[in-house]
Design a protein around this nucleic acid. Structure first.
Lengths: 194, 194
DNA sequence: TTTTCTTGATTGATCAGTCAATTAAAAATA
DNA sequence: TATTTTTAATTGACTGATCAATCAAGAAAA
């Protein structure tokens, strides 16, 4: 066990452990000991690096958010034109890394936590705004502003809705079906454009 | 304070207190004392009538479920034909009683709890199946079976999605806008019928 | 009198967070 | 290089708070 510059390694391991613990448990009521145990360290060490449980949870959420952001950036860089950008945004949200049970459970748990924690809510609103503006950047090319906004809100709701159903393992639980249903909606809406 | 047949009164008061406590707190981590205090009784009495906290939570969820069922039944009885039935199902989900912040927060909290508790999950799946079959009974008149299923799944996801956004107070947070967006989707899909 | 209703006090478990002490690595010094 | 010194990493044991659940006992009704 190397002892050089442990901080980033341990932090990362603890964040990964947090995601997997939440994913298995399905909620945020995981204990520091469970998380630390999964990461192979003591709970005291988790406190040493993160201070309080809240901070570890927030760091975990920021990690999730930045991973999604990175995936999105990659996908958008490969897209040509607004229509492809739109599909890229959708497909990233249903990609294997984002739509896996652990990540989905963590997202759902964080949505609930956001009701209590203003810091969490702020993070989620950042995510929502970014999703909205990414969708708008694709939709604005085809729809008047008002319709584009309504369509973006609808797509965002659909994505969240499929995440919930995935967490419950009910309905179209696989990523491909969910993505297809969202794409179907987009096609339908855009087919009416003059 | 009348002492005759207290059981149903107290149970009902405790269930109402549970909903309002969860609504205020935003999560299921409310304590028995908080709930009991809200209902104006001691926590020991809550245990006396419900046994364990789980059972109170399950009873609360069954209550929510049966209220939704009753609202739905009323709305469907006034609907003429499949198209109106479809709109009735949608409007009930966004009615003042169902889409209020307390109820929405409770639903979201129960979705999370369902990850851990098989009993809760069973209850939620009952709800999901009922919603699906109600939507199908409207959609089947206009769409071939495969498309009707896909459309029902999409509508269900949209409803859940707008519930989440309502809980977060982000996006179209009012019932009317959310209902309109779902109706817009239905119109769009049905307008393509031959 | 018996049954229903109600609570205060208590118990036992769980958990976040702290702290003093230990080990190991790095850096500084001889 | 060998040494001491300083800094980083790590933990077991502990504390205090919280909470679900129990229970014995009291008040009220039947």
């Amino acid at each position: 066990m190397p002892k050089t510059g442990m901080e980033p390694l341990r932090k990362r391991a603890l964040i990964d452990a947090t995601i997997s613990a939440i994913g298995e448990r399905g909620a945020l009521d995981v204990t520091m000991s469970q998380i630390a145990g999964r990461a192979g360290v003591s709970s005291a060490l988790a406190h040493h690096y993160f201070g309080a449980k809240d901070e570890l949870l927030q760091a975990t959420m920021r990690h999730l958010l930045s991973e999604l952001g990175a995936d999105l950036k990659t996908a958008l860089s490969k897209a040509h034109g607004p229509r492809e950008r739109l599909s890229a945004v959708i497909s990233v949200n249903f990609s294997a890394t984002q739509f896996c049970p652990e990540t989905v459970a963590a997202w759902l748990a964080f949505y609930v936590e956001a009701q209590k924690s203003p810091a969490m809510r702020r993070l989620l609103i950042v995510y929502a705004r970014r999703l909205h503006s990414n969708l708008m950047s694709g939709l604005s090319a085809f729809l008047p502003r008002g319709e584009a906004i309504a369509t973006a809100e609808t797509i965002a709701a659909m994505i969240d809705g499929f995440y919930i159903r995935r967490a419950l393992k009910d309905g179209p639980t696989d990523a491909a079906s969910a993505a297809r249903l969202v794409e179907d909606y987009v096609k339908l809406r855009l087919s009416r454009t003059r």
